[in-house]
Design a protein around this nucleic acid. Structure first.
Lengths: 157, 157
DNA sequence: ACGTTAGTGACAATTATTAGCAATAAACAA
DNA sequence: TTGTTTATTGCTAATAATTGTCACTAACGT
């Protein structure tokens, strides 16, 4: 489906900034980006879109279900295209790499727990933090270093 | 164990602010508080401790393992005394109430997933968001309204 | 093409949190 | 105890991320 059609389906007027942001998210190979990452990435490809607009559009996309917002450790929001089905995340605290996984048993138990507690679930997030194999073995990760800034904590706490 | 002894064990010099904060956390019936909640709670009981100190001390407590920091939806950090064992959280998005639970099966699957991915786990967080029974049935929650401000999103997004 | 209305860009404002630094209070030895 | 050393505190200013404001502009329906 074209980005244009996706916007329509999401109930959003198709404007240039929205199209640019959506198609960038769809074509990049970096799955998890902060608003600023998105902003800079667009700048790099010559698109001048205001940072405030990026924030606004990402929030609209979130409400429309086009992207998912994550709050990994460190506070700032990280966005991911909502294209595949639901999945959880393993974050490497050394290199910032994010592995995605889906575990049926976990999902089922979650549903069960919510039900038993009388909750009607809206959504949930499972984040696991650790150190990946590459970083443990030879201190280098196979993945694009660009990922680093986005996901890892920026403060030096 | 006295708060004093706990601080010692954690390798922290026993100072008045640290004692006040720790014993407040131990005696309050509000398990999840932001730094500002802690600050205000102390003010209410007549203790004048600077907000910056509260932030610093909470971070020290986190590093020492005395408290756990959570990043629920909405961005700001929420702190909880690390007295019971590990548990996960169910957050009601209407009233802000937080239910805690522990599910052995989920924990085991998590360990398994990490292992299979070559990760050495440091910690993990599972947050489930929904609407609790009370809020669904009669729009009122059994719990102290004071919890509201702490946990719920402050922005009106 | 034209007007209406929603969307955008630039920048100011807010919010949460951290940094800097002079004043103070713990710890510990004399 | 008292003095001395060094970590800690309390202000206040600074920063970082995000949102609000508002005049200008671009979509969409006619």
């Amino acid at each position: 489906m074209s980005s244009n059609a996706e916007l329509k389906k999401a109930g959003l007027k198709t404007t240039l900034p929205r199209l640019k942001i959506l198609s960038m998210l769809e074509s990049t190979n970096i799955r998890h980006m902060t608003a600023e990452d998105v902003y800079k990435s667009l700048l790099d490809s010559g698109e001048e879109i205001g940072l405030a607009t990026v924030y606004r559009v990402l929030t609209q996309f979130e409400n429309a279900g086009l992207v998912i917002r994550h709050n990994f450790e460190g506070g700032r929001s990280v966005f991911e295209l909502n294209d595949e089905g639901h999945h959880d995340h393993l974050v490497c605290m050394e290199c910032g790499e994010v592995f995605e996984f889906y575990d049926k048993a976990i999902e089922e138990r979650q549903r069960k727990v919510a039900e038993e507690s009388g909750f009607v679930l809206d959504n949930h997030s499972l984040y696991m933090y650790g150190v990946c194999e590459g970083m443990r073995n030879n201190g280098k990760c196979s993945i694009n270093k660009k990922k680093l800034s986005s996901v890892l904590n920026t403060s030096k706490r």
